[in-house]
Amino acid sequence: MTTANAEQAGGSEQALRIAFSPCPNDTFVFEAWAHGRVPGAPAIDVTFADIDITNGMAERGEFDILKVSYAVLPWVLDEYALLPCGGALGRGNGPLVLTKDADTDLTGRTVAVPSERSTAYLLFRLWAADVVPGGVGEVVVMPFNEIMPAVRDGKVDAGLVIHEARFTYQEYGLHKLADMGEHWEATTGLPIPLGAIIAKRSLGAETLASLAEAARTSVQMAWDDPAVSRAYVMEHSQEMDPAVADQHIGLYVNEFTADLGDDGYAAIRGLLTRAAAEGLVPALPAEALAFG
């Protein structure tokens, strides 16, 4: 976990603390805001942390603004509000289940996952409930960058992968057994809800509205002139190939990033309702997702 102070007038003493991942989609979205170029936006002090860490921060009530998995919302929406923009939903961008052999039967097999408090995990369990009649075996949590090597080396039978692994898994000699996003879209017709932006309700309605506007403006500025954010994106992308970073941004930053809209909210409610029915998350009151 690394920290980068916001380069804004007023300094970090007045800045709101925000944590999001160093992945290209997040740095692309927040670059203008982080560098003080969004007119009228509250100053922010940025911490970079992977989403499994920010999920824990949210559950402990740390930080003012966080990028988290939609899967963690049932545990945090008493203290945090869901912002209607800045997050990651979409189509054709779901997690993958990878195996060493193309025809692996997952019944009773060991599967590595990046987190049990993640949308990827919920989508995986909903998929498995539909297509693995005997049920999978042991689920092992490990850092997402260790999952593909573990599958390749036979330490686990399958791995649930996210992010840029969609573009690189073949380099490990692995096969795509199933696409969780394809299954979700085929069974619901809805986009795939991945990462949410939340902010503390205690900041007040006026500040929450300004945060939503800042996130929306920041992503629009990134779209208007992508070259401006390039250095920031590549600085934090952990030596990712620039072409992969561009694919990553193209896949995860879309119209739902600017505004969730009716389909976005329907996807979130659908995911959490189905997951609650399977006993994977607590039931969430319908009004909990409301903003404003």
Rank of each mutant, 00 (worst) to 15 (best):
S21N: 04
V76C: 08
R201E: 11
L77N: 02
D78L: 01
L190N: 09
D101E: 12
A275S: 14
V111P: 06
M148H: 01
L272K: 01
K155H: 12
M1G: 12
P24C: 00
A58L: 05
V253D: 10
T104P: 03
V68P: 04
P143A: 06
L89R: 02
G181R: 09
R117V: 10
I44R: 07
L160C: 09
T107K: 03
V139W: 03
L89F: 08
P114M: 12
S218R: 09
P149I: 01
Q14P: 02
G92F: 12
G159S: 12
L123A: 10
G279Q: 07
C85Q: 06
R17A: 14
V131A: 15
D130M: 09
Y70W: 13
V136H: 11
V29I: 15
A277F: 11
A165F: 02
A276V: 05
L190M: 13
R152M: 14
I198Y: 04
A120K: 10
E255M: 00
K176I: 12
A128I: 02
V113E: 04
A4L: 14
S12N: 14
E278N: 15
E185R: 00
L203P: 06
D241Q: 14
A128L: 08
G159M: 09
G250F: 02
V113K: 09
A165K: 00
P133N: 04
V68A: 02
D263N: 02
S115F: 04
A6H: 09
D225M: 05
N93A: 13
V281H: 11
L82T: 04
V219E: 04
E255H: 08
M240T: 11
R60N: 13
V219P: 05
L289C: 06
A258W: 00
L83E: 02
G94W: 03
F124P: 02
V29P: 00
Y172N: 07
Q170H: 15
N93D: 06
D103S: 08
F48D: 03
A102C: 02
A178R: 13
A102V: 13
M240G: 06
E59P: 00
L77E: 01
L106T: 01
A150N: 09
G134D: 04
G181D: 15
M234Y: 03
L203D: 04
E235D: 15
G264P: 01
G195P: 00
E116P: 00
R216I: 01
A178H: 14
T104S: 11
F124Q: 02
I18F: 11
V140R: 14
G86V: 00
G264K: 01
S202H: 03
L123S: 07
R152L: 08
R152P: 08
R152K: 15
P24E: 09
